[in-house]
């Protein structure tokens, strides 16, 4: 007799597709946040699956810090073209120019935290009532408390101690005018699941996820790419190393790891053997024990 069972990746995919369709049904004007990072890529991939043969019924939104790895932007533009989707870009540079935020100064200056203002602005300007993203509960301890459907008040704030209970697979997206939702279709995925899914589905990803030769320098034990956006100290000489990135965020706060993994298969082996979390290379999380919780309360993803 045939056994009717799904592998864990099939079950996770079925859950994510269900969430994506629920968003398209419950919200009038949703959007998918798309950074060109692997997590948002797999969400976009499943959005294609969820609505095939129709096009993805919502735009993709990139909150652009202006401090990108060029490979990510190239990838983003090609990807949008390939899947025939609509892209909306919210620019942090513009928020700075308009005086809405003030750029951090000093050696460890980053625009990562400024994204929140631009994100909330973009949501407001386009009247999005739901912003989906590729955040996962396993990434960070504050995110472990997050719901699939996460309510935000009119200021975009998250109230982690007073969240709506979420039962079975019934999602309550009801809200008042001016409020919105953040929805996380891949809440239950781990870094390993994402990589396995990329392999299984043969999904294209930006080249910097795979090992390559790069000019880097070391700061506080983290390997950083040399870029125009970071000021190197004299004690931080440029060196050439074979590296890859485990996460892709703002270039000023995303570190690389030394690696020989130049194929997805090799990345999976490396992830299986890894002894640090992927956000261990993110200096934005290291600012304090509750850094992520504090940013999320304000409206960060």
């Amino acid at each position: 007799m045939q056994s009717y069972r799904l592998t864990h990746l099939q079950e996770l995919e079925a859950e994510a597709i269900y969430v994506l369709r629920e968003v398209a049904s419950q919200f009038e004007n949703p959007a998918l946040l798309f950074s060109g990072g692997k997590d948002s890529i797999i969400v976009a991939h499943m959005a294609r699956k969820a609505f095939w043969p129709a096009k993805i019924p919502f735009p993709l939104v990139h909150v652009d810090t202006g401090h990108n790895f060029p490979e990510t932007i190239e990838f983003r533009d090609q990807y949008i073209k390939d899947i025939d989707a609509t892209l909306i870009v919210g620019s942090v540079q513009k928020s700075i120019d308009e005086g809405k935020v003030i750029e951090e100064k000093g050696y460890s200056a980053s625009r990562n935290i400024l994204q929140t203002v631009t994100l909330l602005d973009t949501i407001e300007k386009n009247k999005f009532d739901c912003a989906m993203g590729g955040a996962r509960r396993d990434e960070e301890k504050a995110r472990a408390k997050e719901r699939f459907f996460s309510h935000r008040d009119e200021f975009g704030q998250w109230d982690p101690k007073n969240q709506r209970p979420e039962l079975w697979n019934i999602f309550n997206g009801k809200k008042n005018i001016g409020e919105h939702f953040r929805v996380f279709p891949i809440s239950n995925w781990t870094e390993m699941d994402v990589w396995q899914y990329i392999l299984q589905e043969k999904i294209q990803i930006p080249s910097i996820y795979l090992a390559h030769e790069r000019d880097v320098f070391v700061r506080d034990g983290v390997i950083m790419s040399t870029t125009d956006f970071i000021q190197q100290r004299e004690t931080e000489p440029t060196i050439r190393m074979k590296v890859r990135f485990r996460t892709i965020g703002d270039a000023t706060c995303t570190g690389a790891v030394e690696s020989d993994a130049d194929t997805v298969e090799k990345v999976i082996e490396e992830v299986a053997a890894a002894r640090t979390t992927e956000r261990g290379t993110r200096s934005d999380d290291k600012r304090s024990e509750a850094a992520m919780e504090d940013r999320k309360k304000e409206g960060y993803f």
Partner: peptide, 23 residues
């Protein structure tokens, strides 16, 4: 490891459902 919110760590109690993953 499982107490993710600041209030939980401060009070040494778990307030909300937390999801954990392992394989």
């Amino acid at each position: 490891l499982t107490d993710g919110l600041r209030a939980e760590r401060e009070q040494g109690i778990t307030i909300d459902v937390a999801y954990r993953y392992f394989a």
